[in-house]
């Protein structure tokens, strides 16, 4: 074999490579797939509007969301109050705008906190196996066996005070077992691949394998779970507020607005309907964005989409 000219070995493959389509930048490709589908685009626009609304609430809200105006109670939509007023005469539009701030804050922080803790637990369980796996997974079994609303009520009830962070803690804690489960399942399937064996043969430490090999491959399917989680947490907050242990009045959150409005469901259905629709849009938007991100970052779909 030695007498064979060296070029012949490489050239065949090198030719194959030049025939490959030119490389577009990562970000361009991501954008092309993500914005190329109407549904993802709509989801993105909804999320963008809600996020911008929350950021610029102070600037765009026409009224103070807390100040009462008892002369103008329960008014239908008008030029002064685009979405009408509630039972204390507060402008619904302003409350929805400020409510976006609270709801998103709770949604993001609860999901990210629980994702970090849950993912670490799931990764550790999958990677180390043995008793680590048993302890972590049985712990999540115990947490999962309690209905999450009861768990959240328990936490919110024990930590009295009704601050936003207590709600975040309760909701986040409730989402940890689900995150740990998802991560563990993903990590276990990723672990079966030969490249994990290869990483060990190279001499990588357990931590390095977990973070550079398992995590990047196990994480993308979780993005869908995460974004859905944001929607779920916003709904969980609505549930807690509905039971009176969520965000406390007069601070507006979409959840406690639904609760406040239910007494007037027969006479002024808009009071509950508007925040309800807002929650629905937010959940839908995040689900679509999640699906879009998943499709766009999956390298196996390169060239297909």
């Amino acid at each position: 074999m030695a007498e064979k000219p060296k070029v012949s070995i490489g050239s065949v493959d090198a030719m194959g490579a030049t025939a490959a389509p030119p490389r577009t930048s990562e970000w361009r490709r991501f954008a092309r797939i993500f914005f190329g589908r109407k549904l993802y685009l709509i989801g993105f626009i909804i999320v963008a509007i809600i996020v911008l609304t929350a950021i610029f609430a102070q600037v765009i809200a026409p009224y103070d969301p807390i100040e009462n105006d008892l002369d103008h109670r329960l008014q239908p939509p008008s030029a002064d109050h685009w979405l009408g007023t509630d039972q204390l005469g507060r402008d619904m539009l302003s409350r929805i705008i400020y409510g976006a701030q609270i709801s998103l804050l709770i949604g993001f922080s609860a999901v990210f906190a629980s994702a970090i803790i849950g993912a670490l637990m799931g990764l550790a369980a999958a990677h180390y196996g043995g008793w680590v796996f048993t302890v972590i997974m049985r712990l999540t079994d115990v947490l999962m066996s309690l209905p999450s609303i009861i768990l959240m009520m328990l936490i919110a009830g024990m930590l009295k005070g009704g601050g936003i962070w207590i709600v975040v803690f309760a909701l986040g804690f409730g989402s940890i077992p689900g995150m740990a489960r998802m991560m563990c399942g993903q990590a276990l399937s990723v672990k079966q691949n030969d490249y994990i064996m290869a990483a060990r043969a190279v001499g990588m430490s357990n931590w390095r394998i977990m973070l550079t090999q398992i995590f990047p491959n196990a994480f993308p399917p979780l993005i869908v779970g995460l974004t859905m989680g944001i929607g779920g947490v916003v709904m969980g907050e609505a549930g807690l507020s509905f039971l009176g242990i969520g965000v406390q009045a007069p601070t507006p959150s979409w959840g406690n607005m639904v609760m406040d409005g239910q007494r007037f469901l027969m006479t002024n259905p808009l009071l509950s309907l508007i925040p309800g629709v807002a929650i629905m849009l937010l959940v839908f938007g995040f689900n679509m964005v999640g699906d879009g991100i998943r499709d766009a970052i999956d390298p196996r779909l390169r060239g297909v989409l």
Binding site: N193, D194, Y195, A198, P216, P299
Partner: peptide, 12 residues
């Protein structure tokens, strides 16, 4: 390794 598809991390 035997499998050139499975032995390389697809995200690296």
């Amino acid at each position: 390794f035997q499998d050139p598809f499975g032995s390389l991390n697809p995200r690296q």
